[in-house]
C-alpha cells in the first residue's frame, strides 16, 4: 500500500547564528590561509620588539644576523 505524506519533511542542520558544521568545514581552507596571514602579520609588526628578535628572528638561518647587534665593546662610545 502506498503511504502518502502530507508535505515534504524538512530537516534543518543545527546552527548557531547561521553557522553550522558544513559551513565551518567549507571555511577551513580559508581559516588556515588567514591564520598564516595573521602569523606573517605578527612577525612583520613585532619585527623591532627585542623579545621577539632575540627569541625567534635572530635564530633564522642565513638572515638571522639582520636582527643581531654585537659591536665590539671597544667601539661603543661611552
Amino acid at each position: 500500500m502506498v503511504s502518502y505524506i502530507r508535505a515534504p519533511v524538512y530537516k534543518s542542520v543545527k546552527s548557531i547564528a547561521g553557522i553550522n558544521l558544513p559551513v565551518l568545514k567549507a571555511y577551513i581552507p580559508n581559516f588556515v590561509l588567514w591564520g598564516g596571514a595573521v602569523g606573517a602579520g605578527i612577525a612583520t609588526f613585532t619585527d623591532g620588539v627585542p623579545l621577539f628578535k632575540d627569541t625567534f628572528y635572530s635564530k633564522i638561518p642565513v638572515v638571522g644576523t639582520h636582527w643581531t647587534h654585537n659591536p665590539d665593546p671597544e667601539d661603543v662610545p661611552i
Binding site: N30, L33, A37, A43, V63, H66
Partner: peptide, 26 residues
Amino acid sequence: KRNSVYVATILVGAFSFQAFFDVGVN
C-alpha cells in the same frame, strides 16, 4: 585570487625582504 593569500604574500614579502636585503647589501 584569494585575499588571504594576497595579504599573506605581502606580509611575508615585507618580513623576508628586509632581512634578505639588509644581509645581502651588508
